[in-house]
Simulated scan of single mutants.
Amino acid sequence: MRSRKKKTWKKVTAAILSLLVIGGGAYGYTVYKSLNKAVDAMHQPIERKQSEKRDEAVSLKAKDPFSVLMLGVDEREGDKGRSDTMIVLTVNPNNNSVKMLSIPRDTRTEIIGKGKEDKINHAYAFGGVPMAMDTVEDFLDIPIDYYIQVNMEGFTDMVDAVGGVTVQNDLDFSQDGFHFAKGELTLNGAQALSYTRMRKEDPQGDFGRQTRQRQIIEGVVKEGASLSSLTKFSDIFTVLGKNVKTNLTFDQIAAIQKGYKDAGTSIQQMQIQEQGKMINNIYYGLVSSEEKQRVQNELKTQLEL
Protein backbone atom coordinates (compact mmCIF):
# COMPACT_ATOMS: atom_id res chain seq x y z
CA MET A 1 0.00 0.00 0.00
CA ARG A 2 2.32 2.72 -0.81
CA SER A 3 4.10 3.54 -3.81
CA ARG A 4 6.91 5.65 -2.72
CA LYS A 5 9.07 3.68 -0.45
CA LYS A 6 8.85 6.04 2.44
CA LYS A 7 9.64 4.46 5.69
CA THR A 8 6.61 4.69 7.81
CA TRP A 9 3.64 3.28 6.01
CA LYS A 10 1.06 4.76 8.31
CA LYS A 11 -1.12 2.02 7.43
CA VAL A 12 -4.57 1.92 6.80
CA THR A 13 -4.45 -1.68 6.84
CA ALA A 14 -5.72 -2.60 10.10
CA ALA A 15 -8.53 -2.07 7.80
CA ILE A 16 -7.72 -5.33 6.30
CA LEU A 17 -8.95 -7.20 9.34
CA SER A 18 -12.02 -5.01 9.55
CA LEU A 19 -12.76 -5.33 5.84
CA LEU A 20 -12.58 -9.08 6.26
CA VAL A 21 -14.73 -8.92 9.39
CA ILE A 22 -17.33 -6.75 7.70
CA GLY A 23 -17.10 -8.41 4.33
CA GLY A 24 -18.19 -11.86 3.57
CA GLY A 25 -20.72 -14.39 2.56
CA ALA A 26 -23.54 -11.94 2.07
CA TYR A 27 -22.18 -10.86 -1.28
CA GLY A 28 -22.79 -14.15 -3.00
CA TYR A 29 -20.82 -16.87 -4.70
CA THR A 30 -18.78 -14.63 -6.99
CA VAL A 31 -17.46 -12.59 -4.07
CA TYR A 32 -16.90 -15.79 -2.12
CA LYS A 33 -14.66 -17.11 -4.87
CA SER A 34 -12.76 -13.83 -5.13
CA LEU A 35 -12.18 -13.70 -1.38
CA ASN A 36 -11.12 -17.35 -1.34
CA LYS A 37 -8.57 -16.66 -4.06
CA ALA A 38 -7.25 -13.57 -2.28
CA VAL A 39 -6.92 -15.34 1.06
CA ASP A 40 -5.10 -18.21 -0.61
CA ALA A 41 -2.57 -15.69 -1.96
CA MET A 42 -2.34 -13.97 1.43
CA HIS A 43 -1.97 -17.08 3.56
CA GLN A 44 1.52 -17.52 4.98
CA PRO A 45 1.66 -19.77 8.05
CA ILE A 46 4.54 -19.44 10.51
CA GLU A 47 6.20 -21.88 12.87
CA ARG A 48 5.53 -20.70 16.38
CA LYS A 49 4.71 -22.50 19.61
CA GLN A 50 1.38 -22.16 21.36
CA SER A 51 1.44 -18.98 23.43
CA GLU A 52 2.08 -19.44 27.12
CA LYS A 53 -0.22 -16.48 27.73
CA ARG A 54 -3.25 -18.73 27.04
CA ASP A 55 -4.34 -21.92 28.74
CA GLU A 56 -6.02 -23.08 25.54
CA ALA A 57 -5.72 -22.08 21.90
CA VAL A 58 -8.15 -19.40 20.79
CA SER A 59 -11.31 -20.70 19.10
CA LEU A 60 -12.93 -18.44 16.53
CA LYS A 61 -15.88 -20.78 16.15
CA ALA A 62 -16.52 -20.41 19.88
CA LYS A 63 -16.27 -16.62 19.46
CA ASP A 64 -13.29 -16.22 21.78
CA PRO A 65 -11.77 -12.74 21.94
CA PHE A 66 -8.53 -12.71 19.95
CA SER A 67 -5.58 -10.49 19.08
CA VAL A 68 -3.85 -9.56 15.84
CA LEU A 69 -0.48 -7.92 15.30
CA MET A 70 -0.52 -5.61 12.27
CA LEU A 71 2.92 -5.04 10.74
CA GLY A 72 3.56 -2.32 8.18
CA VAL A 73 6.80 -3.32 6.51
CA ASP A 74 9.05 -1.54 4.05
CA GLU A 75 10.93 -4.34 2.31
CA ARG A 76 13.59 -3.37 -0.21
CA GLU A 77 15.37 -5.80 -2.49
CA GLY A 78 18.01 -7.67 -0.49
CA ASP A 79 16.78 -6.16 2.78
CA LYS A 80 14.20 -7.78 5.06
CA GLY A 81 13.24 -4.31 6.28
CA ARG A 82 11.78 -3.15 9.56
CA SER A 83 8.23 -3.01 10.81
CA ASP A 84 7.87 0.75 10.91
CA THR A 85 4.26 0.40 11.97
CA MET A 86 3.11 -2.00 14.67
CA ILE A 87 -0.55 -2.07 15.68
CA VAL A 88 -2.14 -4.53 18.06
CA LEU A 89 -5.86 -5.20 17.61
CA THR A 90 -7.82 -6.97 20.33
CA VAL A 91 -11.23 -8.09 19.08
CA ASN A 92 -14.06 -8.92 21.48
CA PRO A 93 -17.43 -10.09 20.10
CA ASN A 94 -19.01 -10.00 23.54
CA ASN A 95 -18.73 -6.22 23.91
CA ASN A 96 -18.68 -5.73 20.12
CA SER A 97 -15.49 -3.72 20.01
CA VAL A 98 -11.95 -3.65 18.67
CA LYS A 99 -9.23 -1.93 20.69
CA MET A 100 -6.38 -0.64 18.59
CA LEU A 101 -2.98 0.10 20.13
CA SER A 102 -0.21 1.67 18.06
CA ILE A 103 3.23 0.83 19.45
CA PRO A 104 5.77 3.59 18.71
CA ARG A 105 8.63 2.18 16.65
CA ASP A 106 11.33 3.56 18.99
CA THR A 107 9.92 1.79 22.06
CA ARG A 108 12.77 0.18 23.99
CA THR A 109 12.10 -3.38 25.12
CA GLU A 110 13.65 -6.82 25.23
CA ILE A 111 13.84 -8.45 21.81
CA ILE A 112 12.72 -12.01 22.52
CA GLY A 113 15.09 -14.51 20.96
CA LYS A 114 17.85 -11.94 20.61
CA GLY A 115 18.74 -11.57 24.29
CA LYS A 116 19.04 -7.80 24.36
CA GLU A 117 17.04 -4.61 24.59
CA ASP A 118 16.51 -2.58 21.45
CA LYS A 119 13.86 -0.66 19.54
CA ILE A 120 10.78 -2.84 19.23
CA ASN A 121 10.57 -2.41 15.45
CA HIS A 122 14.00 -4.08 15.11
CA ALA A 123 12.45 -7.42 16.13
CA TYR A 124 11.12 -7.96 12.63
CA ALA A 125 14.51 -7.19 11.08
CA PHE A 126 16.22 -9.67 13.42
CA GLY A 127 13.75 -12.54 13.23
CA GLY A 128 10.84 -11.78 10.94
CA VAL A 129 7.20 -12.17 11.93
CA PRO A 130 7.75 -14.83 14.66
CA MET A 131 10.25 -12.68 16.58
CA ALA A 132 8.04 -9.60 16.17
CA MET A 133 5.05 -11.51 17.57
CA ASP A 134 7.07 -12.95 20.46
CA THR A 135 8.52 -9.56 21.35
CA VAL A 136 5.17 -7.75 21.30
CA GLU A 137 3.59 -10.60 23.26
CA ASP A 138 6.25 -10.25 25.95
CA PHE A 139 6.03 -6.45 25.99
CA LEU A 140 2.24 -6.38 26.40
CA ASP A 141 1.94 -9.63 28.39
CA ILE A 142 -0.95 -10.86 26.24
CA PRO A 143 -1.15 -13.64 23.65
CA ILE A 144 -0.66 -12.54 20.05
CA ASP A 145 -2.84 -14.98 18.14
CA TYR A 146 -2.52 -13.86 14.54
CA TYR A 147 -0.56 -11.49 12.38
CA ILE A 148 -1.27 -9.45 9.28
CA GLN A 149 1.75 -8.07 7.43
CA VAL A 150 1.24 -5.29 4.93
CA ASN A 151 3.65 -4.31 2.21
CA MET A 152 4.17 -0.54 2.18
CA GLU A 153 4.03 -0.57 -1.59
CA GLY A 154 0.34 -1.45 -1.42
CA PHE A 155 -0.80 1.41 0.82
CA THR A 156 -1.92 3.81 -1.88
CA ASP A 157 -3.63 0.97 -3.77
CA MET A 158 -5.77 0.09 -0.75
CA VAL A 159 -7.03 3.64 -0.27
CA ASP A 160 -7.71 4.00 -3.99
CA ALA A 161 -9.47 0.61 -4.10
CA VAL A 162 -12.13 1.87 -1.67
CA GLY A 163 -12.48 5.15 -3.57
CA GLY A 164 -10.50 7.34 -1.16
CA VAL A 165 -11.05 8.17 2.51
CA THR A 166 -12.46 11.14 4.41
CA VAL A 167 -10.72 12.46 7.53
CA GLN A 168 -11.13 15.37 9.93
CA ASN A 169 -7.80 17.23 10.01
CA ASP A 170 -7.01 19.45 13.01
CA LEU A 171 -3.54 20.63 11.95
CA ASP A 172 -2.68 22.74 8.90
CA PHE A 173 0.51 21.38 7.28
CA SER A 174 2.23 20.41 4.04
CA GLN A 175 4.01 17.16 3.21
CA ASP A 176 5.52 15.72 0.03
CA GLY A 177 4.12 18.55 -2.07
CA PHE A 178 0.57 18.19 -0.70
CA HIS A 179 -1.12 20.80 1.48
CA PHE A 180 -3.53 19.60 4.16
CA ALA A 181 -5.82 22.35 5.44
CA LYS A 182 -7.80 22.09 8.66
CA GLY A 183 -11.23 20.56 8.37
CA GLU A 184 -12.78 17.65 6.50
CA LEU A 185 -10.57 16.25 3.75
CA THR A 186 -11.11 13.53 1.17
CA LEU A 187 -7.81 11.87 0.30
CA ASN A 188 -6.67 9.52 -2.44
CA GLY A 189 -3.97 6.92 -1.87
CA ALA A 190 -0.94 9.15 -2.49
CA GLN A 191 -2.38 11.93 -0.34
CA ALA A 192 -3.28 9.52 2.47
CA LEU A 193 0.28 8.18 2.56
CA SER A 194 1.72 11.69 2.84
CA TYR A 195 -0.93 12.66 5.41
CA THR A 196 0.23 9.88 7.70
CA ARG A 197 3.95 10.46 7.16
CA MET A 198 4.22 13.88 8.79
CA ARG A 199 5.37 14.10 12.40
CA LYS A 200 8.14 16.73 12.67
CA GLU A 201 5.72 19.67 12.40
CA ASP A 202 3.25 18.08 14.79
CA PRO A 203 3.39 19.30 18.41
CA GLN A 204 2.44 15.77 19.45
CA GLY A 205 5.25 14.21 17.41
CA ASP A 206 4.84 10.48 16.85
CA PHE A 207 1.52 10.41 18.72
CA GLY A 208 0.04 12.89 16.25
CA ARG A 209 1.31 10.73 13.41
CA GLN A 210 -0.35 7.68 14.98
CA THR A 211 -3.63 9.58 15.27
CA ARG A 212 -3.57 10.36 11.54
CA GLN A 213 -2.66 6.76 10.83
CA ARG A 214 -5.70 5.55 12.74
CA GLN A 215 -7.89 8.07 10.93
CA ILE A 216 -6.88 6.52 7.63
CA ILE A 217 -7.44 3.02 8.96
CA GLU A 218 -10.91 3.90 10.16
CA GLY A 219 -11.61 5.68 6.87
CA VAL A 220 -10.76 2.56 4.90
CA VAL A 221 -12.93 0.47 7.21
CA LYS A 222 -15.85 2.84 6.75
CA GLU A 223 -15.51 2.99 2.98
CA GLY A 224 -14.90 -0.73 2.73
CA ALA A 225 -18.11 -1.41 4.60
CA SER A 226 -20.20 0.96 2.49
CA LEU A 227 -22.51 -0.25 -0.25
CA SER A 228 -20.73 1.76 -2.94
CA SER A 229 -17.41 0.11 -2.16
CA LEU A 230 -18.85 -3.38 -2.18
CA THR A 231 -19.19 -3.08 -5.94
CA LYS A 232 -15.40 -2.80 -6.02
CA PHE A 233 -14.78 -6.00 -4.09
CA SER A 234 -12.72 -7.47 -6.92
CA ASP A 235 -10.27 -4.55 -6.83
CA ILE A 236 -10.08 -4.67 -3.04
CA PHE A 237 -9.42 -8.41 -2.92
CA THR A 238 -6.79 -8.12 -5.65
CA VAL A 239 -4.95 -5.46 -3.64
CA LEU A 240 -5.16 -7.58 -0.50
CA GLY A 241 -3.84 -10.67 -2.25
CA LYS A 242 -0.83 -8.81 -3.63
CA ASN A 243 0.16 -6.83 -0.56
CA VAL A 244 -0.89 -8.74 2.54
CA LYS A 245 0.42 -11.83 4.32
CA THR A 246 -1.32 -13.49 7.25
CA ASN A 247 -1.48 -16.78 9.14
CA LEU A 248 -5.27 -16.60 9.11
CA THR A 249 -6.83 -19.29 6.93
CA PHE A 250 -9.92 -18.91 4.79
CA ASP A 251 -11.99 -20.91 7.29
CA GLN A 252 -10.79 -18.69 10.14
CA ILE A 253 -11.65 -15.55 8.21
CA ALA A 254 -15.06 -17.03 7.44
CA ALA A 255 -15.51 -17.64 11.18
CA ILE A 256 -14.56 -14.02 11.89
CA GLN A 257 -17.07 -12.79 9.32
CA LYS A 258 -19.78 -14.90 10.89
CA GLY A 259 -19.13 -14.32 14.58
CA TYR A 260 -17.36 -10.98 14.88
CA LYS A 261 -19.06 -8.76 12.31
CA ASP A 262 -20.45 -6.24 14.81
CA ALA A 263 -17.11 -5.89 16.60
CA GLY A 264 -15.52 -4.52 13.44
CA THR A 265 -17.83 -1.51 13.47
CA SER A 266 -16.53 -0.14 16.80
CA ILE A 267 -12.83 0.68 16.94
CA GLN A 268 -11.49 2.20 20.16
CA GLN A 269 -8.06 3.81 20.05
CA MET A 270 -5.45 3.34 22.76
CA GLN A 271 -2.19 5.18 23.40
CA ILE A 272 0.91 4.22 25.32
CA GLN A 273 2.82 7.10 26.89
CA GLU A 274 6.61 7.18 26.61
CA GLN A 275 9.52 9.38 27.60
CA GLY A 276 12.20 9.97 24.98
CA LYS A 277 15.81 9.37 26.01
CA MET A 278 19.19 9.17 24.30
CA ILE A 279 21.12 6.00 25.20
CA ASN A 280 24.56 5.58 23.63
CA ASN A 281 23.64 8.32 21.15
CA ILE A 282 20.50 6.46 20.04
CA TYR A 283 16.97 7.75 20.65
CA TYR A 284 14.57 5.42 22.47
CA GLY A 285 11.05 5.68 23.86
CA LEU A 286 10.95 4.47 27.45
CA VAL A 287 7.73 3.17 29.00
CA SER A 288 7.36 3.28 32.78
CA SER A 289 6.36 0.12 34.61
CA GLU A 290 3.13 1.84 35.73
CA GLU A 291 2.19 2.81 32.18
CA LYS A 292 3.02 -0.61 30.85
CA GLN A 293 0.85 -2.21 33.54
CA ARG A 294 -2.04 0.12 32.71
CA VAL A 295 -1.95 -0.82 29.04
CA GLN A 296 -1.53 -4.52 29.78
CA ASN A 297 -4.51 -4.52 32.14
CA GLU A 298 -6.76 -2.82 29.57
CA LEU A 299 -5.81 -5.31 26.86
CA LYS A 300 -6.22 -8.29 29.18
CA THR A 301 -9.70 -7.09 30.10
CA GLN A 302 -10.56 -6.74 26.41
CA LEU A 303 -9.35 -10.31 25.79
CA GLU A 304 -11.13 -11.57 28.93
CA LEU A 305 -7.93 -13.01 30.36
Rank of each mutant, 00 (worst) to 15 (best):
I87H: 11
V68G: 01
D74H: 11
N92W: 00
I87P: 11
V88I: 12
D74M: 13
D79H: 09
L71V: 04
N95Q: 14
K99I: 07
L69N: 08
R82Q: 15
T107R: 04
R82T: 05
R108P: 05
D74V: 07
L71H: 06
D74I: 09
L69D: 07
G78F: 07
N96I: 08
N94D: 15
D84M: 08
M100Q: 15
V88C: 04
N95R: 14
S67M: 09
D84E: 07
M70F: 03
L89P: 10
G72Q: 03
K99F: 10
M70Y: 01
L101P: 12
N96K: 15
I103T: 05
R82C: 03
I103Y: 00
E75V: 15
N95L: 07
S102W: 05
S67T: 05
I87N: 09
L71C: 06
V91G: 09
R108H: 00
L69Y: 07
K80D: 10
G72A: 04
V88N: 10
T107F: 13
N92Y: 00
S97E: 14
L89Q: 15
G78R: 03
P93R: 00
G72P: 07
N95Y: 03
M86W: 00
N92E: 07
K80H: 08
D106I: 01
N92F: 00
G78A: 06
R105S: 12
V73Q: 00
S102I: 05
L101K: 03
M100F: 02
D106L: 00
N95G: 10
P93Y: 02
G72L: 04
R76T: 09
D79M: 12
V98R: 00
K99E: 10
P93L: 02
S102F: 00
E77R: 13
M70N: 07
K99Y: 13
N96R: 15
